[in-house]
Amino acid sequence: MKVALFVPCYIDQFYPQVGIATLQLLEKLGVQAHFPAQQTCCGQPLANSGCERDALPIYKHFVETFSDYDYVVAPSGSCVYHVRKHFDKLDQTADVQHVRSAAYDLIDFISTVLKVDALPGAFPHKVGLHLSCHGQRGLHQANESEMTPVRDGQLSRLLRSLDGIELTQLNRNDECCGFGGTFCVSEAGISARMGQDRVADHVRNGTQVLTGSDMSCLMHLEGIVRRAKLPIKVMHAAEILNGVVA
């Protein structure tokens, strides 16, 4: 199994520890992932801004970078969702089709491909799980409150398997945090308010560690947490899981 690691641009630049944790976690699970150095970005920031045409060279570069791998794993459901859903704009060559179906969010990869839904280890903290919309509603990694009252999903199953962990019961289990890519600056007021409301739900219900599988939402929420100087630690799920698994 040839697995490539895709580290989205903002993680590469601002959260290298998340990329490192992803790589190490995969290794502990028996997967030697490779990081092709020529990778850049999935093109989503441009496409979401209405500049899909300008993103096409990025899409092509992405496909060229990853077409030789069986799987492309990224610690970000949003980028994966973009590759799977919006790379339909490219000519659907065998390589393009392959890369679209080979792209996996890290947690999805662990659950679906590696078929791991429990991990040995302890994390004795109260953990609030932020369900990112693109992973949840886009990639169906967790149940949606629009459909069912049952709150279940890949990451919550993995986290619940850890000893001593308590998952926060939120009032609104899966409301969007308001990041939204360029939305966070083009609609900065609403974006911030949404983030503040999401964080308040965690504060109200006792979250000590705020986690999720999409670093873009977490970057936004962390910005809010730090501005308000709240006693909440924000960690990508890869960091938690890598930290507890020997």
């Binding site: 580290v7 903002y10 993680i11 590469d12 630049q13 601002f14 959260y15 290298p16 520890q17 998340v18 990329g19 490192i20 990081f35 150095a37 966070c184 600056v185 083009s186 900065a188 007021g189 911030a192 308010r193 983030g195 503040q196 970057m219 936004h220 962390e222 910005g223 809010i224 730090r226 501005r227």
Partner: peptide, 17 residues
């Protein structure tokens, strides 16, 4: 516009790559 209500991420010395 990001920084009106949010802190920027702390820039690490070294990127992942």
């Amino acid at each position: 516009a990001w920084a009106v209500a949010r802190e920027l991420p702390e820039a690490p010395k070294q990127s992942f790559r």
